[in-house]
Amino acid sequence: MENQYNFAFFDEGSKREIRRATLKAIAIPGYQVPFASREMPIARGWGTGGLQLTLSLVTKKDIIKVIDQGTDESVNAVSIKSLVRKTTGIKDTVDTSKASLIQSRHRIPEEELKKGQILVLQVPMPEPLRFVESSEYKTKRLHADGEYSGAWLVLFEKIVKFGMVTGGAAHPVFVHNRYVMTPSPIPKYDNSKLNESEALILLGAGREKKIYAVPPYTKVVSLAFEDYPFELEDQTGLKCNLCGAANVFLDEIKTEETDEVYYQCNDSSDCLKRLNKGGKS
């Protein structure tokens, strides 16, 4: 006999508590709101923060899309989607434009998000100052005082050692001229999509028990030094092997047999959409 779970797995009290934290996060863009992270039927670090946000927000009218590293078909995405579907009965989609609620790990979809959509990002490490300060009490004080030299220091150290800001993901951003935030491990390519986004962006860290948000139309600026401006991943001259798209985030794929290197759209549903419209096959 199948268990009869409450709608969206959680009891209503849990949903209310997570929604309250979410509302506070929206009211204070970039501020990390602590919340009582629940035990979930997936392991911590596998998207429990994002899943809790999704399950507390989902309604019967929603259409959900779940992606993991850009793809709708990875094991984690499929499992999360299956859990949401089974406990809510709502529809799911791979089409970004049709989804009202999108849960994602490590990517913001290529297709521009629209007003009314909610993007939930899974975050492993929400604290941008953790590399320089291990004490939670002290990082809270640093945030309160707006003292972000630690976040800048991490970038400076990379420049000193490698001559450039290395590290392709989780480049810190300055939100609403107030808080420095780590945008989850999205590639630098996606950082600009956070700025003035029409959609509500929520970030959930289950293991670290934090929720934070970028409300629609919020100014988000990537940290950069005057003489080392923020630079995206260099994909000059590269295009997708399947659809031919050039101005998208690409994965590098190497065939073991021939050592051949080719590139493919990271956002698989976006690539598929282009192919269906008659792109290169």
Binding site: V132, S149, W152, F156, E157, V160, F225
Partner: peptide, 23 residues
Amino acid sequence: QMKFSAISNIAQKLIAAGSRNVG
């Protein structure tokens, strides 16, 4: 900051004081 280079340790105070030019 024991994990950061000597030069970055000096830089931290300069950054905290508002300097944003790596050079």
